[in-house]
Deep mutational scan, measured.
Amino acid sequence: ATNIVSKVKWYNSTKNFGFIEQDNGGKDVFVHKSAVDAAGLHSLEEGQDVIFDLEEKQGKAYAVNLRIK
């Protein structure tokens, strides 16, 4: 899926990962520091509106092509 609009559930800049809620009630989506860095960001804030693409690797959903709404 591409261009999903949602909100950051939480992000831990010390552990370099977090999760984004899915508005459709699906499972929370993992977001890694590499996606945050690629977006030119230093961190994410809880409740922040984001747009991302969903990529599945080894049966897990990852946020990629992250951008701020």
Score class of each variant (00 low, 15 high):
45 E>H: 15
34 S>W: 11
60 K>N: 08
44 L>F: 06
54 L>P: 00
42 H>W: 12
2 T>K: 14
18 G>Q: 01
55 E>S: 09
44 L>T: 01
13 S>V: 13
2 T>F: 13
46 E>G: 13
7 K>H: 10
45 E>L: 13
7 K>A: 04
46 E>N: 13
5 V>H: 14
15 K>V: 08
32 H>G: 07
60 K>M: 10
34 S>P: 02
13 S>I: 12
42 H>P: 12
1 A>Q: 13
14 T>K: 14
54 L>E: 03
47 G>Y: 05
57 K>D: 09
43 S>E: 11
48 Q>V: 09
10 W>Y: 07
53 D>E: 05
46 E>F: 10
1 A>W: 11
40 G>Q: 07
11 Y>L: 00
69 K>E: 10
41 L>N: 03
35 A>T: 09
60 K>F: 11
35 A>F: 05
38 A>E: 09
14 T>V: 13
12 N>H: 09
16 N>Y: 09
39 A>W: 04
9 K>F: 03
57 K>M: 10
3 N>C: 11
52 F>Y: 12
50 V>M: 05
68 I>N: 06
55 E>K: 11
30 F>T: 01
4 I>R: 10
16 N>S: 10
67 R>K: 09
21 E>M: 15
20 I>T: 01
3 N>A: 09
67 R>Q: 08
58 Q>H: 14
26 G>K: 12
20 I>Y: 01
66 L>A: 00
30 F>L: 04
13 S>C: 14
28 D>S: 06
30 F>I: 03
61 A>G: 08
45 E>M: 13
53 D>V: 04
14 T>M: 13
27 K>F: 10
37 D>N: 14
50 V>E: 01
62 Y>H: 09
63 A>N: 02
5 V>C: 13
12 N>K: 09
40 G>W: 05
2 T>D: 07
66 L>Y: 00
61 A>Y: 15
7 K>W: 08
38 A>G: 07
55 E>Q: 11
40 G>I: 04
47 G>D: 05
10 W>C: 08
52 F>V: 04
7 K>F: 07
67 R>E: 04
8 V>I: 09
35 A>H: 06
37 D>T: 14
17 F>K: 01
5 V>S: 12
59 G>T: 04
15 K>N: 06
65 N>Y: 04
27 K>L: 10
48 Q>F: 06
38 A>I: 09
64 V>C: 07
10 W>D: 00
15 K>A: 08
24 N>L: 10
26 G>N: 10
57 K>A: 11
26 G>C: 10
45 E>D: 10
59 G>V: 01
18 G>K: 02
35 A>M: 08
44 L>Q: 01
38 A>H: 08
29 V>N: 02
46 E>L: 10
50 V>T: 02
55 E>R: 11
49 D>K: 12
2 T>E: 09
39 A>H: 03
63 A>T: 02
25 G>A: 09
37 D>M: 15
40 G>K: 08
4 I>C: 10
2 T>V: 13
9 K>P: 00
50 V>S: 01
57 K>Y: 13
64 V>D: 03
20 I>A: 02
15 K>R: 12
17 F>R: 01
40 G>C: 09
34 S>T: 12
19 F>Q: 02
12 N>Y: 06
6 S>L: 05
25 G>N: 10
43 S>A: 11
29 V>T: 06
